[in-house]
């Protein structure tokens, strides 16, 4: 059969595949998951960018029917699209935890997720434990972290501290993590990171009916409305179990609360494409929200049993 080349970029690797012309998103996605040995597939997706807007490959649509650049290799980023409510309970396989760790670490270092200075240092110390193993002063000599990107630039700029002083601060914590295996250190990292306000939130710029610019956040727990100046604390939240219906028509998006006494919330997003993405993220997040509130599927039960062994 006729094929074309796709390049898949994960958080720590790049792979190329020959993709058949007739393949649907799911065929390619499954191949990538099989190649990675990843079974907790429901958190992930294949991301591409179209006109500066993020988009995700649809499972039931042909790969080539997507609005992707047809120049080969066609490139997709294999990334977490949905986040667990509780990493320790939900992320079972080591590979799943590792991919989340890398993705969240990048978001924090790139300042996509705000992290206060003290927490940044603690997170850095777990990242160092994950990479270097137990602290050994005879091996980890002064300057051993000089080439590592460990802290957000904002945090570094906040203090009059030399790189040596930062290394000392991080190493003091690092030495405390003795005995933690890589996967444990990465899980400790995620347990701290998941409590950061911006963790796992997809932000979209919207305008309310008065034309005021606001932010919409979509996450594991529901929809949130923010002042653009404050991405940390929502002005209004709509938890999934308090929403009756969500819909869009062109650029307009409507959230209908369950409680009829609460006003319907309507806003406009910049593009129809953005509304489609918002709805997709809502459906996926709500689906996981519901699944968490049912018993584990047989597959997850088996994986948890395996992980315990």
């Amino acid at each position: 059969p006729k094929t074309f080349t796709v390049r898949i970029v994960t958080m720590d690797a790049e792979m190329e595949f020959n993709c058949e012309m007739k393949w649907k998103g799911k065929d390619l996605f499954d191949l990538v998951c099989r190649t990675l040995g990843l079974r907790e597939t429901w958190f992930f997706g294949l991301q591409y960018t179209i006109k500066d807007t993020v988009a995700w490959l649809k499972m039931d649509k042909k790969v080539l029917d997507h609005d992707v650049s047809k120049e080969e290799p066609v490139t997709f980023h294999f990334l977490a699209k949905f986040y667990p409510e509780n990493a320790e309970e939900e992320l079972v396989q080591e590979i799943t935890q590792h991919l989340f760790f890398l993705q969240v670490k990048k978001q924090i270092l790139d300042e996509k997720v705000y992290c206060p200075p003290e927490a940044s240092v603690l997170l850095a110390s777990y990242a160092v434990q994950a990479k270097y193993g137990d602290y050994d002063p005879s091996v980890h000599k002064r300057g051993f972290l000089a080439q590592e990107e460990l802290l957000p630039k904002r945090v570094i700029n906040l203090y009059q501290m030399t790189p040596e002083m930062w290394e000392e601060r991080i190493t003091a914590w690092y030495a405390e993590h003795r005995g933690r295996a890589r996967d444990e250190a990465e899980m400790e990292y995620l347990k701290i990171a998941q409590d950061l306000e911006m963790y796992g939130v997809n932000y979209f710029t919207i305008r309310n009916k008065k034309g005021t610019e606001l932010l919409l956040g979509v996450d594991a727990l529901g929809l949130h409305i923010y002042d653009p100046e404050n991405r940390l604390t929502p002005k209004i939240s709509f938890p999934w179990n308090e929403i009756r219906n969500i819909s869009y028509s062109d650029k307009e998006f409507t959230i209908k609360p369950l409680d009829k006494k609460i006003d319907v919330f309507k806003f406009n997003s910049s593009k129809l494409r953005v509304n489609k993405l918002i709805l997709q993220l809502c459906i996926g997040n709500h689906d996981l929200f519901m699944r968490r509130r049912k018993a584990d599927s047989l597959e997850v039960q088996q994986m948890k049993a395996q992980a315990r062994e």
Partner: peptide
Amino acid sequence: WHRRRTGTYGVLAAWRRLPR
């Protein structure tokens, strides 16, 4: 082809469809 310009998701309905 026509782009679909509307979409809807019944959050409550999905919850009710959920097997106990």
